[in-house]
Simulated scan of single mutants.
Amino acid sequence: MTTRILICNRMLLYAEGLRRLLAEDERFAVVAAGGDAETVKALAAFDPHVVIADPACFEHVAGAGRTILLTWDGVSAASPQSFGNLRELVNCGLAGVLDARTDPVLLRKAVTKVCAGELWLDQQIIRRVLRPDAAQSHIQLSRREIEIVQLLRQGFSNKRIASELCISEQTVKTHCNHLFKKFSVSSRLQLVLRTSPDSLSSSPLPH
C-alpha cells in the first residue's frame, strides 16, 4: 500500500525538500503541501495517512491524519512530563515528534512506523523526558494561568477559553504569552508538552 503524506510547513523551500526526499521512496506519495492556515485546512481534504507538520500548523491538521511533528527545537519542546501528556496529544492526532534536522533514513522509518499505528519519539527527546528538570518544578502560576493551561490541554481555542472563563480573547492571548515566557516555549503545543496535571496542582498564586 502506498502511504499518502501531507506536508504542512510554513517554510516552503523546506517543505519542497521534504517532498522530493520522500518521493524517492516508492512506498510514499506526497498528496499535497502547504503552509498557511487556510491552505492547510483545505489540504486536509486529501485524506492523508500521515501528516508531517511544523508546530504552527499542528492545530490546523488535527484529525486529518496521524501527525509527525517536525521541530527545530525538538529537545526543548519536550519535558519530563511529556509521557503523561501523550494520550491527550495522540487524541489530537499527534503520532510522532522528530527534530527537523533528522537523518532522512530515520524520517522514512518514522513515517512507516506512524502509518502502521505506532508512536515515534526522537531518542534525544526521550532522553530529555527521562531527565528531571528541577527548574521547571518551581515555576509558579496564577489560578487564571492554571485554568487556561488546563483548557489548552483539552484542545480549546482562545475563543472557547474566553467564553468558558468569561474573559476577552485578548486577555487569553496575553495570559498565553506570559505562559510561553515562563516555560520558555513559543507555541501552544510546546506549552502542553511542558505541563502536566501534577505541575498544575501545586498551590497557585492569586489571579
Rank of each mutant, 00 (worst) to 15 (best):
R108G: 04
G93C: 07
F46I: 00
S79H: 08
V192S: 04
T67W: 04
A95R: 03
R131H: 05
S76V: 04
F58V: 10
I161T: 14
V30Y: 02
T195I: 09
E26C: 04
M1N: 14
A45R: 13
S168P: 07
P55R: 14
A42G: 14
I7Y: 10
A32H: 07
E59P: 02
E164N: 10
I5Q: 00
F83A: 10
R194V: 05
S157N: 07
Q140A: 14
L141K: 04
N9F: 05
E38C: 07
L69A: 02
I125E: 00
A134I: 11
L106A: 09
P55C: 11
T67Q: 04
T67S: 15
A135T: 13
L151I: 09
K159T: 12
D25C: 02
N158P: 07
R19K: 15
D25P: 05
T171Y: 12
R131Q: 11
V75Y: 00
Q154W: 04
L205K: 12
I148M: 11
P55Q: 15
I148L: 14
K41E: 09
K173T: 14
W120G: 02
V129Y: 01
L119T: 02
T2V: 14
P197N: 13
A37Q: 15
S196H: 06
I146S: 10
S76Y: 00
A116R: 08
G34S: 09
Q123G: 01
L165Y: 09
A110M: 06
R101Q: 03
A29D: 12
L152Y: 15
A62V: 07
A15D: 08
R66L: 09
S201P: 03
A62T: 12
A15S: 14
L89P: 01
Q140R: 15
G96N: 04
G74P: 00
F46Y: 12
L43I: 00
E145K: 03
V97T: 10
G84H: 11
R144T: 15
T171D: 09
D25Y: 06
D133S: 09
K173R: 15
I139S: 06
S186E: 07
L21F: 06
D99A: 04
K109P: 01
P206G: 08
V31E: 14
P104C: 05
H60I: 03
E145S: 08
Q170M: 06
R144E: 12
S137R: 13
L98H: 02
V111I: 15
G35L: 06
